[in-house]
């Protein structure tokens, strides 16, 4: 398989699955359904984009779900307990997310912990912190009070695409949620950062071979901390979108969502071996998982089967990744091997 066809494999597979569900599942090919898909999975797409950065560096961030809950609870407390206006809450929320991510990065670089252990520890710590600062428990009655600040709830806005294109009444198009546009903006920014900046090239170099990158004069520690901070920042952004959707936050928010984000990133072509991947992949991976979940639900297939299928897709993606890697390696080492054997 050439490089181009490998890159096209995921979008084509996504389109094939999408077409299959449009044909097989009743009510799947409807404007409302695509609206649901965008509204329900955009925040996961943002998490997957963030998750791709640690994975690019041969790392992993298991704490994104806990960071999501931490930021969510900060928004809840600031807005409902302290009546901080929304325009001030949003930058603070993003800052908390980025800082929580940066702590992960420091644990990995300064303390030299394995990313798995470091972020597993912060997963527990951040989740504990959420319970400790929970305004739902500190102030009785607050758990049944929704967040009404327009700056925050404004993130749950939908745009009438058909009207904007002057096609109202001609075709029925889905209303586009603001969260989806934010996902696209996040994708654009981080894609440019990764593909067309010094910072991005450094990350690929570190992921490919950290020691070589260090010898080449790349500030490995700073770059690694930045990568984990980006993951935390994305979790913070996802938290804002989710809190806007729910009009509240809970202590258990985002439990287990790190696995979906990691799955989406890996399906999207970010190899756990580091050094490869394009950011569009994780976004497609997210919506692939979304399409499968919604489609199977509409076909009335048990959710246990859905979970099994998600696992199978993940296994297939990882298997494909391993196969591609070993092929490339074989091709690279083949001349040397034949030379040596002869």
């Amino acid at each position: 398989m050439s490089n181009t066809s490998a890159r096209l494999a995921l979008p084509l597979f996504f389109l094939a699955v999408l077409t299959a569900f449009c044909l097989a599942a009743p009510n799947f090919a409807s404007a409302g359904n695509f609206e649901n898909l965008m509204a329900g999975f955009s925040f996961i797409g943002i998490l997957a984009i963030g998750q791709s950065f640690p994975i690019l560096l041969r790392g992993i961030d298991l704490s994104v779900g806990a960071i999501l809950a931490l930021v969510g609870m900060c928004i809840f407390d600031l807005s409902l307990m302290f009546a901080v206006p929304g325009w001030a809450v949003i930058p603070l929320a993003l800052l908390v997310g980025a800082l929580a991510g940066a702590v992960n990065g420091l644990l990995v670089t300064v303390l030299r912990l394995s990313p798995f252990i470091a972020t597993l520890a912060t997963l527990a710590a951040y989740r504990g912190l959420v319970y400790a600062i929970s305004g739902r428990q500190l102030v009785p009655g607050l758990s049944t009070k929704p967040i009404t600040d327009r700056w925050i709830t404004g993130f749950e806005t939908y745009f009438d695409l058909a009207r904007m294109l002057g096609l109202k009444g001609v075709v029925k198009l889905p209303w586009v949620p603001l969260s989806f546009l934010i996902l696209l903006a996040t994708l654009a920014v981080f894609y440019l950062l990764l593909a067309h900046s010094r910072f991005g090239r450094d990350l690929y170099a570190i992921g490919g071979n950290p020691e070589a990158a260090r010898l080449a004069g790349i500030p490995v520690t700073r770059r690694t901390v930045a990568a984990y901070a980006i993951s935390g920042f994305c979790a913070g952004l996802a938290a804002i979108l989710l809190v806007a959707r729910l009009t509240t936050s809970t202590e258990a928010l985002g439990e287990g969502i790190e696995l979906t984000a990691i799955a989406a990133a890996v399906i999207g072509g970010f190899s756990l071996a580091g050094g490869t991947g394009q950011l569009i992949g994780p976004v497609i991976g997210t919506f692939l998982l979304g399409v499968v979940l919604i489609g199977l639900t509409q076909m009335g297939i048990s959710q246990f089967v859905q979970q099994i299928l998600t696992g199978v897709i993940l296994l297939a993606a990882v298997g494909n990744d391993r196969w591609q890697t070993s092929r490339t390696e074989r091709r690279r080492t083949a001349p040397a091997l034949t030379g040596g054997a002869a």
Binding site: G40, L246, G254, E255, I257, L293, I294
Partner: peptide, 9 residues
Amino acid sequence: QGKVEVQVS
């Protein structure tokens, strides 16, 4: 699945 976001979806 014990998750609000899943229920909402």
